Simulated assay, not measured.
Amino acid sequence: MDCRPVAVVGYENAELLDIACVTTSLDMANGLGELRTPYRVMVVSPGQRAISCRPGMVLRSTHALERLTGPLDTMIVSGGFGYAEAAADPLIVAHIQRLARISRRVASVCTGARILAAAGLLDGKRATTHWWFADALAAQYPGVDVDPDPIFIRDGKISTAAGITSAQDLTLAFIEEDHGVELARMVSRMLVTYLQRPGNQAQMSMFTAAPPPGHDALRRAVDHVNADLAGDIGTTALAAVAGVSPRHLTRLFLTHMGQTPGRFVREVRVAAAAHLVVSTSLPLADVAARCGLASAETLRLAFVRRYGIPPSQYRARHRSARS
């Protein structure tokens, strides 16, 4: 092939950012890289109908889904609030199956994972989707190993991204794979974005997770955790700060945060440690102490469990990406 055909599949009520993060990043790579095999980006929809996107925007399609032929380098199925109708449409599902067979890579963004699952493409595979929709995907497709934490997952030729801007992270990873890290860095700089969040970075972190408004006891506990990572922030101590019993605090965390107080504390400590590992030159033992982890070895084990690599490698990788 003298180009890399990429089909970005949309449908009624697809999410515009799911599509634009992919198409803009690939077009930027074409413009910056003087590529031997540039990307030929196609926006595909059933019947080549215009794609209505919230709120009131309409995106022109360049190709009809049912008429598209291959081979394709990559097919990416977008998410959006129309995902359920798209996943239930036998025409869309059949053509996703057909195009997957002639694509080198297949990917989804956000709720587009539901469409891949309906096509049987995620059976026996580890996959992610937007955290809000992860439980529903797992319940409807028990043969899919749904992990709601990472921003994207690659399992063989299939990739799934968490949603919205994570489409850009996945696309940058594709550009790096196809054309090297320097082009991916250049694209990210032109887009004024971070290069590039690793796929195993959490969708939710200490910087984005917060209790819902109106739950003062829970908010007091969460604020206390974030303010005193090295202190006593066990469930009993947090319950005292919140002014409720440990049992009631656990119920509040499970209901509104989706996890126990103990797990929340562990995740916040590791997220804070990851921030310090990348943003400072502190010895790892000092990072561990500041974040309430017992030792550098405890920190190492926590990183391997959460990110799949030790903190020293995490530091080297992220600093390299920033340079």
Rank of each mutant, 00 (worst) to 15 (best):
M1I: 02
R4F: 06
R4W: 06
A7Q: 14
V9G: 02
Y11Q: 09
E15S: 05
A20S: 15
C21R: 05
L26V: 01
A29G: 02
L32Q: 08
L32A: 11
P38Q: 02
Y39F: 12
V43E: 03
P46F: 07
G47N: 08
G47K: 04
I51H: 03
C53P: 04
H63V: 05
L65P: 04
T69F: 00
G70W: 12
P71C: 13
L72W: 14
D73M: 00
V77M: 09
A87E: 12
L91N: 11
V93A: 13
A100T: 03
G112W: 04
R114S: 10
L121R: 01
L122D: 02
G124K: 05
R126N: 09
T129M: 09
H130G: 15
W132I: 10
A134V: 14
D135P: 06
L137W: 06
Q140P: 00
P148E: 07
I151V: 15
R154L: 00
D155E: 11
S166Q: 03
D178F: 15
V181I: 13
L183M: 14
Q203P: 00
M204L: 14
S205H: 11
T208G: 05
A221G: 03
V225H: 10
N226A: 12
T235C: 11
V241L: 08
G243D: 10
R247D: 07
H248F: 05
H248E: 07
T250V: 01
F253I: 00
H256P: 00
M257E: 13
G258Q: 12
T260K: 13
V265N: 09
R266Y: 15
E267M: 12
A271F: 14
A272I: 04
A274P: 09
H275V: 11
H275L: 13
L276E: 13
S279K: 10
A285C: 01
A288C: 06
C291H: 11
C291K: 07
C291Y: 07
E297N: 10
R306H: 06
G308C: 01
S320Y: 02
S323F: 03
